[in-house]
Amino acid sequence: MKQYYVKGNNIITTLVPHQASWVIKKIFNARTYAPGNSTIVLKHKLSISQIYRELRGNFQKVSWRKMLCNNYAPPKCTFITWLAIMGRLATCENLLKVGVHCDQVCSQCNKENETFEHLFFLCDFSYEVWSAILRWMGFRRNVEAWSVELQLLKQHNNNSVSHNVYRMAISMTVYLLWKERNARRFSQLLHTPNMIVRHALMLIYTRCYSVKKFASVV
């Protein structure tokens, strides 16, 4: 294996010169981030993706990665979707688990306690929103539980226009339902399911206008 030297010293093992500039020191200190005893930096052909894979290491891919990594929805929508996937949204159910007491009744239907599943899928308000969004996308099926919807998302993991729009629509709807929940609880602002659907479609069309390959949607 070819060795590289700086003034007669091996670049991998030599100490950082005290009189070196801060740029040179940064370059030398970067050796600590190279795995495998720094052998990766000695290869004749090197790529950024190769370095990234070696630094990252091996791990099991999560089933919902395509939902977030290949999603053209606004960042605020994908962030709320990530919190929803991880079960970290501050619903009344989750707040109660950490000792925060609040009105447990769902602010959208005023019938059942606010759990994640109820708020987003079992509530009459949310069910009406989801049903309209699914019809707009051409689906003729009932709204399922979140765990089932995540499984269905696996079928929309390629880069086609229809699959990208599907992922966008899911993220935007989750975001808008969560925004509506907060508006009702903290600002006493009420919107109808039809208003939420219209807002979601406006967001989808706006994003599609900004991405050339989605021109067929608009």
Rank of each mutant, 00 (worst) to 15 (best):
V98N: 02
P75G: 05
W146I: 01
V148N: 08
I24S: 10
S126V: 01
I12L: 14
I80G: 01
P75H: 08
F120Q: 07
A30G: 12
W178M: 01
V129D: 00
E112I: 13
F28G: 03
L119E: 04
M168G: 04
H163N: 14
R56T: 15
F28W: 13
N94G: 07
V98R: 13
I196D: 02
N159V: 04
K7D: 10
F214E: 02
W178N: 00
S216G: 07
I133Y: 00
S49M: 04
F59Q: 12
M137Q: 10
H44W: 01
Q50S: 14
S38A: 14
T32G: 06
L119P: 05
T39G: 07
R184T: 09
Y4V: 15
V218L: 09
R88A: 12
A84H: 11
L89K: 02
I51A: 13
H199S: 14
K179I: 05
R181Q: 02
H101A: 11
I12Q: 01
H199M: 13
A20W: 15
L46M: 12
M202N: 13
T81L: 07
W178E: 01
E180R: 05
Y4F: 15
E93V: 00
N58A: 11
T192A: 08
Q188V: 06
R135D: 10
C123W: 00
L95T: 01
V23N: 10
M202C: 08
N182H: 06
K61C: 09
E54N: 10
A183Y: 04
N159A: 10
I170W: 06
V165E: 00
S63I: 09
P75W: 05
I196P: 08
S107W: 05
R184L: 05
V41I: 11
Y33L: 09
H191R: 12
